[in-house]
Design a protein around this nucleic acid. Structure first.
Lengths: 396, 396
DNA sequence: GTACTTATTAAGGAGACCATCATTAGTACA
DNA sequence: TGTACTAATGATGGTCTCCTTAATAAGTAC
């Protein structure tokens, strides 16, 4: 995906392509027989076996006992060794730090969340990140050396190299080589991306937008943002500043959360993080003032959403972020507005992944970078810890 | 590019990839020696020769006489046979039909332009298209059977299959299988795309945006539109409706041309197609009323442009279309507005390709689809007419 | 226990790549 | 004119990867 260009090369290159095909066919699927693999990859059976044997030797693939009860000789079955390595996805928000441990198929094995102070100094935040990852590893019974990759999603402008230029909500995030700093903490590859973009990725890989090639993710909450998946890939932009439509004055997005946070139905003294919930709940019950606030909010939301839809013509628009827990309240008025403007109305859905969206996206992002390991140069740094393949017991 | 996925396969697949590498290295370049080719493709010399020999046999590559005056044995030189096939790009506007004949490198060999009536009935317009292509072929001394592809750019919503859903400026363009109709006229592959998108492509391939991966093309003229190049590829959107930010009311794009067409400096009775020219010329000379009109226009233009920039973070924004002849007048106020809003200011340039932009883009679009022919299935329909390679005279 | 079905394994062969080396066709210069 | 030098060519042999085909193996069905 990422590291594989379509350059030609020598014969080993062909084997490499075919190996990736086999792994792609095995990943996330049921244990698979050689015949099925051959059919899926387009290779001949003997060649498929060659590739599978090699991958088994490398520890990427494992044989599982055959199923009984079929006609003919039972086929040997193979599966991707998702447990052969481990990834951690981290969501660094202003108020929370989440982390999740996953296997190479993206299955979440353990999860942690701990609060953070938005204005915490850099060292404190870095230490909290380390603790979050460590406790994930503990929960999974693993140690740092089992880690293959750490992928981090955070607010702000993030360059492809993992530098943070700035963040509106985390003061300590400014002109920072976060990838470099975390690289000293964790003995593995570290990836950094913008949180809204990772949320968009998660929705595309395992959420309501699964399978779509062009996706617009709207993050609605105390902060507004968007993440774009274009042609199946995360769109970062030339200067990593894509998705910042919030800065367009005509959208009114900067102040839009205020509409929900400070409506008449919000009780005096409500902490800001709970305020919008009152408005949205009241609107669900038909309260006029709340509905008015929701109307003002969705009007603003609709301007930015329409801009994205008209420009990009996505297959689906996903509403995520804190406010999307009340997608049932927000979507109808938003749809109403969009239908008046959009040339072609995309699907419009609320996120189902909820708060874990960014962590999951970080994991998926790490998985997208996995193929770097498949045929990594022999340097031990990039070579994943290969354990001997388990040979299943077979009757003699 | 388009038809080549990174699937694996058998050995012929590897040869195919390497052949494409070689063709890519030869295309649009000076005649090249085997050693240079080997270096550029990463292949060994013997393999490179194998590939080149095969391509020569197929008629894709041609040997040219060696250059004298170098040390050592003179190297044989090869070039891509750009004259081995021919493409026609067509720009179907409401008022004009342009066509250009090009070789496989995209060099324009002949060009025609003929006026059209916007409300002409379908048959008349189709006949005009045929005449335009035929006269291009005549000028180049070719016949219909020499044609490999016809690529058409036109206004409106165009599906990937070449159906036109509708067009605001050509009434006859409505629920139309244009690709099918033209396919009956021309005995070759016919491609249809939106004109703004093709203009964007031309700017990316041979205009001011050459080499950029993410490009926003703003078509400013009697109609407003945008074309997007994302990750080096033309972005069409799920329903082929991408780039229609003109429909967003907040931009004011629908009425924006009026600002320039009906300013105080435009003489009474000026035909609409010349009106904006007066305003822009007067603004260039400092006329206050004209500058005011330009200010109003660029303010609206800036809203749509900012939306695109903030969302996509392109490397460069290109101003094209009729009004872009006065890019010197439009760009400074536009830049001024954008700088106040944009998080990262992209490059901002006026088109240098002018009126030919769409035809050139159509040609480039056709070239992007050329690799379909490189190893086409043996069906004669897709197999280009291969002529015997010309063997250069060599001393015996 | 025999027939049938499906996988496995083995053998032979072709295609595509690479490394190496002797040969060739020029230039440079005495 | 002839010799030294240079750089590309052409030919050989070897390796790798894949494919096809055919014989063998391990189950179920009856």
């Amino acid at each position: 995906m990422s590291s594989l260009s379509l350059k030609g090369g020598d014969l080993s290159r062909l084997r490499q392509l075919n190996s990736v095909s086999v792994i792609k066919a095995l990943r996330g699927a049921e244990p698979t027989t050689l015949s099925m693999l051959a059919e899926r990859t387009g290779l001949s059976r003997p060649s498929t076996k060659d590739v599978v044997d090699e991958l088994t030797g490398l520890g990427w693939v494992e044989e599982v006992p055959p199923t009984a009860g079929t006609m003919g000789r039972p086929a040997r079955r193979y599966r991707f060794r998702a447990d052969g390595g481990h990834l951690v996805g981290v969501d660094i928000g202003a108020h929370n730090i989440r982390a999740a441990l996953a296997d190479l198929d993206g299955n979440v094995l353990a999860e942690t969340r701990r609060p953070a102070r938005p204005d915490a100094p850099l060292e404190e935040r870095l230490a909290a990140i380390k603790r979050a990852v460590m406790s994930c590893l503990d929960l999974g019974g693993l140690t740092m050396s089992d880690l293959w990759m750490v992928a981090v999603g955070t607010t702000g402008l993030v360059t492809p190299e993992g530098h943070i230029i700035m963040s509106a909500s985390i003061p300590a995030w400014k002109d920072l080589d976060l990838a470099g700093l975390l690289g000293e903490t964790f003995p593995c590859r570290v990836l950094i991306e913008n949180d809204s973009r990772l949320a968009a990725l998660a929705e595309t890989r395992r959420g309501v937008a699964r399978g779509a090639r062009d996706v617009v993710f709207l993050h609605v909450g105390r902060r507004m943002g968007t993440g774009l998946i274009l042609d199946g890939k995360l769109h970062r932009g030339f200067g990593a500043a894509a998705g910042e439509i919030v800065m367009l004055p005509e959208t009114g997005w900067v102040t839009a959360p205020e509409d929900l946070n400070s409506s008449a139905v919000v009780p005096e003294g409500t902490p800001i993080e709970d305020a919008a919930g009152f408005t949205l709940a009241a609107a669900r019950n038909g309260d006029a003032a709340a509905l008015d606030a929701v109307g003002r909010f969705t009007k603003k939301l609709g301007v930015g959403a329409a801009a994205a839809i008209l420009l990009l013509d996505p297959e689906i628009v996903v509403l995520g972020g804190g406010f999307s827990r009340s997608a049932d309240v927000l979507l109808p008025p938003l749809r109403h507005r969009l239908e008046r403007v959009c040339l072609r109305m995309p699907k419009l859905r609320g996120s189902t992944l909820g708060d874990e969206c960014v962590v999951l996206g970080a994991i998926d992002y790490a998985i997208d970078h996995l193929d770097q390991f498949f045929f990594a140069p022999d340097g031990p740094a990039l070579r994943p810890p290969v354990r001997p393949a388990v040979v299943p017991e077979r009757t003699v």
